[in-house]
Design a protein around this nucleic acid. Structure first.
Lengths: 297, 297
DNA sequence: CTGACCCCCAAGCCATACTTATGGCATGGA
DNA sequence: TCCATGCCATAAGTATGGCTTGGGGGTCAG
């Protein structure tokens, strides 16, 4: 097909062969094959070259259109390879979506302005479901110490730093001491507690059991603003991840490091081959870069 | 490219292979090759099939457009092969263009209503020039006896019957006898003559020389209506082809067969391979059919 | 009439592309 | 837990297709 275009462009079979770096019979055979399956001559052989027949002119129009399309396709793909275009769909749990991810998106926009990044907030189980369904390319998730890391065998899991947990108390609480000195969980054994998401609440229970008591979990919400508002009113104490506090810090609560409470681990998940996709790879890199500065800084 | 469409249609490489009647590795290799030259994965391999990446979706759009174009191209060519479409450009000398060719065009239109036939009036030398220049597909020409048949080696010449020449006289002329009895040229040796086109005049001169006299050619025109008008007024006698008289017969002139004057031969000329073009072939056939009925009838 | 430039045809060789065979991986049921 | 059934990839073998070389016909210009 493209050979035929070259024939019509140069006006001769030998000319097309020269342009293509082939020999003349090769082009001649191609043309013959094309005419055979067209069922009609496409060119008239003249002493100094060939001349298109009506059928040849008709085919040429289509061939030109096809060549244009092929060019457009290669241009589109090249743009994606060179990161001048492309879409990355992220699913992140809310506190990362409010802190790490916006920073990573800014970094990525700076590096590759043409990329289109889309974020959906989703707790880890939902994020993985969306990944499985092909609705997102990257899932930013976490696992509390002692819980099984997320993701089935098909997914690649990349550690993305750790997020320490903090004890959050009313300012009026007797244990609301200096913000940098760790506090032992057991000092809050008698308090009312507020739990987070399902897995967070499970982790709180487990941690307290290990510390030797069963917490009195009276409230539950995965909304960290609401959580802090309740705590500010003196209605409970809580264990909140640092990222949540980074996202929204209520000034009416006290925050202290927790003794013997291991941080939650953050992960980025993706399909195994998704890392080969340029846009996904650079988005992943941006996220990991942000995590690195966040951890070291 | 079309393989990729099949993959996306069936949703799996194995499915595409089944649909194409190939084996699974063949399709897999094609896909790999395509991804290699795209520079990015086009599909994600999932446990029960594959899922298109963004680049794959982009390519699919282009592939669909290309497939549509290919389909349109084959449809166009098929229409031409099946004579539902196509153009034939004819060049014919005026008296044939006024008689045989319209009949042939009607016959062709009846057989193949979709064909587009275009006629240009041209004397044989011009018709051949147009054929050489690729401006027409068929040239209807004639040669007088004794003249070299038209056409260089590149052209195919097909005899298309003969066109007898008639002596045309004023009704008042002493030789204007019964229309079916031949008349000897020499009876008109002393008359004033009117010549036709260049080659016709040359033929007239040659014929008269052979008959033993030199005609007094006073007028000249290739317009057979004008010729007959001059003859009707008694200003000259002439030698007109039967086709010209078929086209326009002035009732004010007498027509008699000429003794010892050989008819002119009609030819259809075309490029050697043009006969392979369906529309040209069927047009040629229609012309020859008309010529045949004309000759026998 | 010879050289240059088209084109076609025939035969040979090489590369591409499809096949068979094998293995890994994920899922679903006994 | 183990096997069965999909899916996909890889590797090696083979054969078909396609390009090359070599030779011939034809037209046109010098």
């Amino acid at each position: 097909m493209l050979i035929f275009r070259e024939i019509s462009r140069t006006g001769s079979i030998a000319g097309a062969a020269r342009a293509l770096g082939w020999t003349q019979p090769a082009v001649s055979q191609h043309l013959r094959h094309l005419e055979r399956q067209a069922g009609t001559p496409l060119v008239l052989r003249r002493p100094r070259g060939v001349q298109l027949t009506e059928a040849g002119r008709a085919l040429l129009r289509h061939a030109d259109a096809i060549a244009t399309r092929i060019q457009a396709a290669t241009a589109d793909l090249e743009a994606m390879v060179q990161l001048r275009a492309g879409t990355v769909r992220l699913a992140a749990f809310p506190s990362a979506g409010a802190t790490l991810i916006p920073a990573a998106m800014s970094l990525l926009a700076e590096r590759h302005p043409g990329l289109d990044v889309r974020l959906r907030a989703a707790e880890p189980p939902q994020a993985i479901a969306q990944l499985d369904a092909g609705e997102v390319d990257l899932a930013i998730t976490f696992t509390h110490a002692g819980q099984t890391p997320p993701g089935s065998g098909e997914l690649t899991r990349i550690p993305a730093g750790q997020d320490p947990l903090r004890l959050v108390l009313p300012l009026t609480h007797p244990s609301a001491g200096p913000p940098d000195t760790p506090l032992d969980l057991r000092e809050l054994a008698g308090d009312s507690w507020i739990g987070g998401c399902e897995r967070c609440t499970a982790h709180l229970l487990q941690t307290c059991e290990l510390a030797g008591f069963t917490p009195d979990i009276r409230h539950g919400t995965d909304d960290y603003v609401l959580t802090q508002a309740l705590i500010a009113r003196g209605l409970a104490v809580g264990l909140l991840p640092q990222l949540a506090l980074d996202a929204a810090r209520d000034p009416r609560v006290a925050v202290r490091p927790a003794l013997n409470v291991r941080p939650r681990a953050l992960y980025v998940l993706h399909h195994r081959e998704a890392e080969q996709i340029p846009a996904v790879r650079s988005a992943l890199r941006a996220i990991l870069d942000i995590v690195a500065t966040h951890t070291t800084g």
